[in-house]
Design a protein around this nucleic acid. Structure first.
Lengths: 158, 158
DNA sequence: TTGTGTGCAAAAGCTTTGCATGTTG
DNA sequence: CAACATGCAAAGCTTTTGCACACAA
């Protein structure tokens, strides 16, 4: 998921535009906090939780409250600029979603590391189940839980 | 997921045996609370959360504590007699797993209803990703989120 | 008898809410 | 200037923990 600096600037610019459209469409206010949070997410973090984002902004001496962080995260989820995950624990994790390929997750049960992968079959399952169950499927979450043998657990955390 | 009464008795009997083996294997105590919780789960509930199970047992005047409920749920997960889910909310949901076909879930974003479905492709994805990422995949969770058009939302809850 | 498991209540951790204040439109 | 968004702290909910007691082995 590494991208060049130019590409990043372009993405940041694009998400801001998309966010602005969304705010305007629903007559919501364009506050500096909302843009700061969006930018922070797109510039720095990969998978993160609300508290980590809050702490991180505080550390940069940005004056923001947890309430605003939570509100804005929900807002960003609702306009598809970020996605929300629950990797088995009682803690919501978020991830930017614009400009990055759709993917699923493999979570290591030993070290908690999260790997991303893509498989086209999941799209087939989605559209097929949508038809069969006469349901309009908006999104999905596929998590595989395992113990990684080599690659990941070199970075064991516990 | 409807089964006959005879079949249920057989399953209850089998899970008890499996549970006993597990307890003995790890030198854990065969307490009446543990068996009561296991039986309660297999006889009555489908998807449920810890609090609902606790309340339900209390209502039957069974003396049990939340701590024991949580401990036992974890124990039952560890011996694969139940599975734990998080359907997007900050609340763990559980489900019996022995004697019932492996399946995934479609959650209605409107009414919260949970439908079960099976698709063999998910097994293929699991084993393929396991090989590629050199990871030993123990379990998975695939949730589709959508708005059901006909069937389910006749029972709309909100 | 020994120590694991339980009940109870308190604590912890994440998220939401209420209210006064600030700021966008 | 009116309404919405924010900051702060308190409250809410689910889950975990500490401690004394009970009971399985």
């Amino acid at each position: 998921m590494t991208i060049t600096s130019d590409k990043l600037e372009q993405i940041v610019s694009e998400v801001k535009t998309i966010f602005t459209s969304h705010l305007e469409k629903f007559a919501l206010r364009k506050t500096p906090e909302r843009y700061a949070i969006l930018e922070e997410i797109y510039r720095r973090t990969d998978h993160f939780d609300a508290e980590a984002l809050y702490i991180h902004m505080k550390n940069q001496n940005y004056r923001v409250s947890r309430a605003t962080v939570y509100n804005t995260l929900e807002l960003l989820v609702s306009c598809d600029l970020i996605t929300k995950h629950q990797f088995g624990k009682n803690l919501a994790q978020y991830e930017k979603s614009y400009g990055f390929k759709q993917h699923d997750h493999l979570i290591c049960m030993d070290c908690g590391e999260v790997l991303e992968f893509c498989d086209p079959r999941i799209q087939q399952i989605k559209s097929m189940m949508g038809e069969i169950l006469e349901s309009d499927i908006k999104h999905h979450s596929l998590n595989l839980y395992g113990r990684c043998k080599k690659v990941v657990c070199d970075n064991r955390k516990d």
